[in-house]
Amino acid sequence: MVEHAQERADAAAHADADGLTDVVIVGGGPAGLSAALSLGRARRRVTVIDSGEPRNRTAAHMHGVLGHDGLSPLVLLERGRAEAAGYGVRFLHGEVEAARVDGEVIEVDTANGTIRTRRLLVATGLEDVLPDIPGFRDQWGRGVVVCPYCDGWEHRNDVIGVVATSPRSVEQAQLLRQWSDRVVYFENVVGAASGADLERLVSRGIRIESGEVTGLRIEGERMTGVEVDGRVIDVGVVFTGPTLRPRDALLRSLGASSTVSDLGDWVDVDADGRTSVPGVWAVGNVVNLRANVSVSLGLGSLVAGALNADLVADDVAATLLAA
């Protein structure tokens, strides 16, 4: 009861005379925190609602992030929260239960009450749906990874396994050939490479293993091999292509439009992050499958600037109306 009373008091401090906060951000990953930092520095009343389950939480390190190469992604988020809080951004742990647009106000329901806000920014990320292969989930972010630019350098010259999950896996194998001349392409249940794909794999010395991948060999905490139809192939790491599932239920519940392509069904946003729903914006992996940490940080800053400009336009219009 005391905790909830304190949260209500904090909410009141982050609202104007009409009980409105400026921006509610759902999701406290790199995109959401970057936007929160910029909006906090712009003296906006900002509340971040976050469940504390970032996409890359299983990875010990992140790479290719300028100035933070090798840093734990959880440390980056911890620092980001502290920086944003220093500019008055409020943080609530938990999930949004529902949201609705009521005229020019958006109401956001949480376990501790409803927040009324002028703008809603959704930065809820995506979920990696891994192949249903024993060991993959336990090794995710360590022995099983997805991004060559994040983990390729650490496995340069290793035996790199690529477990196929779609026809695009052939291109993943070709890309990883940049880091090692010992790449093993596991056809898995996707089917045998043929025609031009087979010719291109063979031409670069990529070894092809047929058969269904049935598991991983684990020694202690370390993945050392891939099991295929009863035999084990030694590898130093496995790259694969999970199915990317955006966590966009909140956006869809609000009626946001989406577009279906060969990469899935993704909610539409313009270059500034606006959705088709007035007052509702989105940024990061929830609407952009290519948004790694660096891209998400940049997009969070960009969208925050556009969102603040949108609020300024409202402020000007309200002042003129009152004059």
Results as ranks from 00 to 15, higher is better:
Asp265His: 11
Val232Arg: 00
Ser261Gln: 06
Asn288Cys: 12
Val286Phe: 07
Asp262Thr: 06
Ile218Tyr: 03
Leu289Val: 08
Gly220Cys: 12
Arg231Ala: 03
Asp265Leu: 10
Gly215Ala: 15
Phe239Gly: 01
Val232His: 00
Ser258Gly: 08
Ser301Pro: 04
Leu251His: 07
Asp265Asn: 15
Arg252Met: 14
Gly279Lys: 14
Gly264Thr: 08
Gly236His: 09
Val260His: 14
Ser276Asp: 14
Val228His: 00
Leu251Phe: 09
Thr214His: 13
Ser261Leu: 10
Ala256Asn: 08
Val295Gly: 01
Ser253Glu: 13
Asp268Pro: 09
Arg245Glu: 11
Val267Arg: 12
Arg274Met: 14
Ala282Val: 12
Arg290Ser: 10
Asp272Met: 14
Ile233Ser: 01
Gly255Trp: 04
Val269Asn: 12
Arg245Cys: 04
Asp248Arg: 10
Gly225Asn: 02
Ile233Val: 02
Ile218Ala: 03
Pro242Ser: 13
Ser261Thr: 11
Val287Ser: 06
Ile233Phe: 00
Arg290Phe: 01
Glu219Gly: 00
Leu244Phe: 08
Gly236Gln: 11
Gly279Met: 05
Ser258Cys: 05
Leu299Thr: 04
Glu227Val: 08
Asp270Glu: 10
Leu263Glu: 15
Gly220Phe: 05
Ile218Thr: 02
Glu219Ser: 00
Val283Phe: 09
Asp268Arg: 11
Leu216Ala: 06
Thr224Ser: 06
Val238Ala: 02
Met223Ala: 05
Arg274Ala: 11
Arg231Gln: 08
Arg290Met: 08
Ala256Tyr: 02
Gly300Asp: 12
Gly298Ser: 04
Thr214Lys: 12
Gly230Asp: 11
Arg231Ser: 04
Val283Met: 15
Val232Lys: 00
Trp281His: 10
Met223Asp: 00
Ser301Leu: 09
Trp266Gly: 12
Gly264Phe: 02
Pro246Phe: 15
Leu289Tyr: 03
Asp272Glu: 15
Leu250Arg: 01
Gly273Val: 06
Thr224Ala: 03
Gly298Thr: 06
Arg252Val: 10
Leu302Gly: 12
Val287Arg: 03
Leu289Arg: 14
Asp229Lys: 15
Val293Ile: 14
Val286Thr: 11
Gly300Glu: 02
Asn285Cys: 03
Thr243Glu: 09
Leu216His: 04
Glu227Ser: 13
Ser257Tyr: 08
Val226Leu: 01
Arg252Gln: 09
Val293Ser: 03
Leu263Tyr: 05
Asp270Arg: 15
Leu299Pro: 05
Leu250Val: 08
Ser258His: 05
Glu212Lys: 13
Thr243Arg: 08
Val283Trp: 05
Arg222Lys: 07
